[in-house]
Design a protein around this nucleic acid. Sequence first.
DNA 1: TTGATAGTGAACCATGTGGTTCACTGTAAG
DNA 2: CTTACAGTGAACCACATGGTTCACTATCAA
Lengths: 120, 120
Amino acid sequence: MVHYQARLDATFAALADVTRRGVLEQLGGSDASITDLAQRFHMTLTGMKKHVSVLEQAGLVITEKVGRVRTCKLGQRRLEEEAAWIEQHRQLWSARFDALDKLVEHLKRKEKANARSKRR
Amino acid sequence: MVHYQARLDATFAALADVTRRGVLEQLGGSDASITDLAQRFHMTLTGMKKHVSVLEQAGLVITEKVGRVRTCKLGQRRLEEEAAWIEQHRQLWSARFDALDKLVEHLKRKEKANARSKRR
DNA sequence: TTGATAGTGAACCATGTGGTTCACTGTAAG
DNA sequence: CTTACAGTGAACCACATGGTTCACTATCAA
């Protein structure tokens, strides 16, 4: 895949900004318009629009404009590739240093449990 | 923690470059000097030095200079926070899509029930 | 001692980023 | 119809980034 590296570039860059991470968290709670987000993060509409565009470009957010308001929601991409990259390298790290992080293990167990109960 | 967000900024930014991800992979295999890395990535010493500095700043790499050669190796930080952040949001994502799935399921069931009763 | 080697720092360059203002379009609503 | 509102795009700004060259220091080796 040629796009794989470019995609990681785009996603990690999108995540490397506290405002954009905040927007993702907000959208995790509920969908929002550009105006909503701009107000919450004390920014102009234009400024927020740019952030949303970056997130959309990275596939982390999708938007739809109906009437004059553009509604933003979490996108289809669920950070699989990024999580995989990090996990892979955590394993590398671990192999070289040997120890496992409790929090992430805990989270992963929780998620696996969720996935399992969902499958039933 | 005030530093938490700044740290995520620095780490994700450090990961948002294909060369730097490559350096991390290389260092996962074995330690290397600036010259080694510069050659492997077809770059000047100065250029590679900058990348290494970014990785070091983010705590992902540590270096030690002995004699004239500076040896780079994987750092103490094992992407715990970043992995945790991503895992957490993967769960958020999942939760929201699960809810959506359920709603859709519910609607579909209702529609089928309607269709059935209409047909009678 | 002399020369090659490894890295460093300053200066420079083009491009990207995070933000603004301003002028504009399209839509909603009195 | 008129006014207010949501968003958009262009232009601009200061600063960061990814890279270079060049001049320099420090170290290793013959």
